[in-house]
Amino acid sequence: MMQITLVYSPAPREVFEQALTLPAQATVRDAVLASALPARFPALDWAAMACGVWGRAVEWDQTLSEGDRVELCRPLTVDPKVARRERFRRQGARATGLFARRREGGKPGY
């Protein structure tokens, strides 16, 4: 038997975390099925989600080890590149970058 942790975040700042005891050679799919996740979130299509172990993407048939942390990732709502462009557009060129806050009378770049 081995101990693993299953983590899912249904919304920002909201986390479902459950510690599970599974038999040796259990897979990521076995962990989800053994958890309370399908019962707690019946409308969730967890099989279509991306899964990972300790932040690394893995397949559903990945074998787990003692102490693994299985993470289910919801899809991104906005492309990170697009979000960065929008943030830059709102802030403007003067408010962004490494040298945005210059001291009074300071040279450019310091």
Rank of each mutant, 00 (worst) to 15 (best):
G106C: 00
L76P: 13
Q62C: 13
G106S: 15
G97S: 04
A43L: 12
L72N: 01
E86G: 13
V32M: 00
I4L: 14
Q91E: 15
E17W: 03
V78Y: 08
D45C: 06
E14G: 05
L22K: 00
E104H: 10
A43C: 00
L20I: 07
E104W: 05
D45H: 04
P12V: 05
V78C: 15
L22F: 06
P42R: 02
T96F: 09
V32N: 00
W46A: 08
G106F: 09
W60G: 08
M2W: 07
L22Q: 01
G55Q: 10
R69G: 05
F41V: 10
P75W: 06
R40N: 13
V7Y: 02
A83K: 12
F16N: 06
R87H: 10
E71L: 08
Y8Q: 10
G52N: 00
V70W: 06
R84I: 11
C51W: 04
S9D: 07
Y8I: 14
L64F: 08
W60I: 12
D30S: 06
F16C: 01
E17Y: 01
E71W: 12
A24R: 01
S35I: 06
V53R: 11
G92T: 09
Q18D: 03
L64C: 05
F88A: 11
A26C: 12
V70C: 08
G92A: 06
Q3P: 01
V70H: 07
A24T: 10
Q91N: 11
F88G: 00
A39W: 02
A57V: 14
S9W: 04
M49C: 13
V78A: 15
V28I: 08
E66T: 05
A36G: 13
W54Q: 10
W60N: 05
K107I: 00
L98W: 13
T77N: 08
E59W: 04
L72A: 01
A24M: 05
P12G: 00
T96S: 11
Q25A: 15
V32W: 01
L98V: 14
A24C: 01
A39M: 03
W46I: 07
V53I: 15
R85I: 07
S35Q: 12
R85T: 08
S35M: 02
G97F: 07
S9Y: 04
